Simulated assay, not measured.
Amino acid sequence: MAKITVSAPGKLMLLGEHSVVYDRPCLVTAVDSRVHVQIKTTKVPTLTINAPEVEIKNYKRSITDFKPSKKLPRGVQFIEAVLQILYEKYKLNSGLSIRTRNGFSSKYGLGSSSAVSVCTAKGISELFNLKLSNQEIFEIAYQAVLEVQGVGSGFDVAAAIWGGTLYFETGGKVIEPLEIKKLPLIVVYSGVKADTATIVKKLAKMRTLKPNYVNSRFDLITKLVKKARDLIETKRWEELGELFNKNQKILHDLGVSTDILHKLCVTSILHGAEGAKLSGSGGGDCLIVMSANGHKHVIEQRLVEAGGTLVPVETGAKGVSIDEKSN
């Protein structure tokens, strides 16, 4: 029996959420809270999954039928979707036992499902000597994401694979690492878990009804993304914070922000932050705050008092990696 443990980072969207779904760029950074996936080959032709963070214990099914069950938590569906792609493409037939462990709560919206998909693809590649490149792993994991949730741009998959901070265009047409290690951010959970697929589909409907309005906002976001890329690499944090505020205003106009996110943004800026915005799909999840001027402790204290929960992560984390392997 061969065994491997693979880990991949979560992510934070910096600028460009929603517009990136429609052939536009975004900026994303990997965070040091990681998802870990252990995969073992077995002699029995079954798939066994244990995912305690989503209360899945000894889930079993035939190794010949990986079609994801909609009744299972998203993370498990992503595993099955990746396995279905790989087993069909490479004619694999070994039984598997898979165990997942999250270094962060899936409620934060930091991309745990995408990280699980990447870990699964990387682990299978290593166990069966498929020698998949990062680009091939991206294509497999991104295909799995689309099969499970129907929508997505792939930026979270890219962050899990390459790590660091990336300039990314829809579907991985462009994936370029930025020359920066860490960003002076405060990350805050709003207390509300968002459903990314639902919010993306809601905005898609709005775009169908008001194409000129929505597309013009997406074009404005694209300009912010391109300007922010240079600001990040030259560490011009105050100007970057201003772009955060502009991006947040657009997202608010598009209806994806919430009262609590707005409250946390205002609170952070009133107490010295250079800027603040939601990170991800909106509707809840996390807020990112630019704090490079020495007011971090005060800002954090006020955010907690306003109802936020601090999420202690570092940015620019390394991408997918093999933690342990044995034959």
Rank of each mutant, 00 (worst) to 15 (best):
Y87M: 11
K57Q: 12
C265G: 05
S94R: 13
Y108A: 04
S114P: 06
A273C: 06
V289K: 03
K210A: 14
G152V: 03
G255E: 08
K11R: 04
I250Q: 01
R302C: 00
Q135T: 13
T267Q: 00
I221M: 08
V214Q: 01
G152S: 07
L240T: 11
I161K: 06
Q301G: 01
N93K: 13
K296Q: 13
L110I: 09
V82N: 01
K182Q: 14
N50Q: 03
E80P: 00
K70P: 05
N212C: 01
H295M: 11
G111D: 10
V200K: 09
L27V: 11
L15Y: 11
V289H: 10
S190A: 08
S114E: 06
G272K: 02
P177D: 12
V304A: 05
S153C: 10
L12Q: 07
S62I: 04
P68K: 04
L220M: 02
T100W: 09
L146S: 05
M206L: 15
M13Y: 08
K181R: 14
L72Q: 09
N93D: 12
K246P: 00
A228W: 12
L130Y: 08
E53F: 09
E126N: 14
S326V: 13
G164C: 01
K43Y: 13
L261M: 15
D259K: 15
T198Y: 12
T64L: 07
T41I: 04
K223E: 12
D156N: 04
G154T: 08
V174L: 12
E136Y: 02
S117E: 04
E179V: 06
G154S: 13
I250V: 09
P184M: 05
G103A: 06
N50H: 14
E274L: 09
Y90R: 13
E136D: 07
G111R: 10
I322Y: 07
K173C: 06
S114Y: 06
V20L: 03
F168L: 05
P52L: 14
G10Y: 03
T315A: 05
I79W: 00
